[in-house]
Amino acid sequence: MTTLSIPEAQHKSNASTVQSSVLIALSDAYRGFVALTRNGMALLGAGLAALVITLAVKSDLRTDVEQQLLSWLQERQDSAVVADDTAMPDDSSDDRLAVAPPPLLPKQQAAVTQWLSRKYRVAPEPLGALVAEAFAVGAKVRLDPTLILAVMAIESRFNPYAQSPVGAQGLMQVLTRVHTDKYDDYGGAMAAFDPLSNLRVGVKVLQDCIKQAGSVEGGLRLYVGAVTTDGSGYINKVMAEHLRIQSVALGKPMPTSFPIFTAAPAPATPEQIEPTQTGLLDSPPEATPASQPVEPAADTALTSS
């Protein structure tokens, strides 16, 4: 049997005491941590409950908190947009109307918008902006807005990016290279593909043509650039569509017959030979730069709303 000396026994006893003290300390620390956590969670829960009750009772305080949260979220969103290199710039200087929901338009304009939207399969929201602009510009220059819309319909079928083989561009199919100066106020030649800019320039060209010819039919002939023929095919298409749109605007029944314009070809003059109108000068005057319009028979099924 092995016996321990007194120093060894004391050393072993001391080690055991230290170990027990450490275990006791760890146990106390664990129990303290658990108690603190429980108390903390209880306090947090009590605080949240008190906050909810306070916000429920005091509506003004709740409103202030909601506004602060909304402001914080808006600031985060704005900062995220600024930090995003792919974000589109906000051009606040452009105050033109991009879309105009038909319900917000006057009755006549809303009816025309809905009818044109169904016939040409164009979204009514952006089309409403074009209708509103046609009425506004037409009133300013004393030109029937339904005639403006009819020219637009025959020329491009309301496609703002239409382009003819000879370079006529946009809604009104203006020959941009000839009328570059008219786009100066709108930022240059590329404005030909901006719907409202193209509409305004096209109306100016049409107004000049009518003034020069002395009649709407003669103005349309100059607008289409007819030189070797009388341009009656184009004129009849525009005038028929003009009567349809006008009937919709006035709430009248859709016409089933239309006047036919015929005239002998006028001799070409040096002024006419110069292409001053749309891009149809170098192509048959009866053709249009966009696809052919819907036949009149198809329109009889469409009535104004």
Rank of each mutant, 00 (worst) to 15 (best):
L220W: 12
D185S: 13
G202S: 05
P145H: 03
T180Y: 03
E241V: 14
V216Y: 04
F158D: 03
A150R: 09
T176V: 15
N198Q: 07
L220H: 07
L196K: 12
G218W: 15
Q207V: 14
T176N: 01
L175G: 04
T146A: 07
G188V: 13
S197W: 13
R142V: 11
G202T: 03
L149Q: 08
A192M: 10
G218P: 11
Y161S: 11
G218R: 15
E217A: 15
M239D: 00
L206I: 10
K204R: 13
E155A: 13
E155H: 02
S232N: 01
L143R: 12
A189C: 03
L206R: 05
K237S: 08
R157W: 05
T229F: 12
K204C: 00
K211E: 15
Q212H: 14
L149C: 08
E155S: 10
A192P: 04
M239F: 10
Y161Q: 11
L220K: 03
A240W: 07
T180P: 00
G219A: 09
Q173P: 00
M239I: 12
Y223P: 03
G170Q: 04
L206Q: 03
K237W: 05
L196E: 02
E217S: 14
D194I: 07
Y223D: 02
A189H: 01
A168I: 03
C209K: 13
A150H: 10
Y234V: 15
D194R: 14
Y161W: 13
A240V: 00
G219I: 13
G233I: 10
L196A: 07
Q163K: 09
G233E: 11
Y223E: 03
N159M: 06
A168T: 01
T228Y: 14
G214N: 06
Q173D: 06
F158H: 01
A162Y: 11
T229M: 06
M239N: 02
P195F: 09
D181E: 12
R221S: 13
Y183A: 03
N198W: 06
Y234C: 13
V166T: 13
V151C: 10
V174E: 00
C209V: 11
Q207E: 15
Y234M: 13
K204E: 12
E241W: 15
M190G: 08
A191R: 14
M152I: 08
V216G: 02
G214K: 07
Q173H: 11
V151T: 13
G214S: 08
F193M: 10
M172G: 06
F193R: 15
E241Y: 12
Y234E: 02
P165G: 01
M239E: 00
R200K: 14
Y161N: 12
D230K: 04
G202Y: 09
P160F: 03
Y183I: 03
D184G: 03
T229R: 13
Y183H: 04
I154G: 01
D185A: 09
I235N: 04
S156N: 06
G167P: 02
C209A: 14
L220D: 06
K211H: 09
H242R: 15
G225E: 02
